[in-house]
Amino acid sequence: MNKSKNDLLPGTLEMLILRVLSLQATHGYGIAQRIQQVSDDVLRVEEGSLYPALQRLLLKGWVKAEWKTSESNRRARFYSLTAAGKKQLGVEAESFQRMIEAIAKVMQTA
């Protein structure tokens, strides 16, 4: 396991989780896998931050969790987005977009 780890920008993990869940309800392991796959192994989610982050989202009411039987006939806790979560994702995506554009501007002109 000597792949270099790319630390996420602070605050972005929650946004990424919301984004993953907006496409499909899945369990904690699925979320981590999905982020890793989609980012071509650039973004690796630390399990140590994943579960605390999920608890935070549950607490804020942006995601909800229920126990379901998964593809491989195993019981797992599936997370899905709530209406409030959808709204929050919009807000976060927008501000993230603005941030990226701003950073890009600075990087290009300076």
Partner: peptide
């Protein structure tokens, strides 16, 4: 208020929460 309500529930029934979390991590 919602957060407070959640926390209160947790305070009262934290054994169940703990079990769920342990099971979830185990699954992972």
């Amino acid at each position: 208020f919602r957060e407070f309500w959640h926390r209160l529930q947790f305070l009262l029934f934290h054994d169940g929460f703990d079990r769920e979390l342990a099971e979830e991590i185990n699954d992972h």
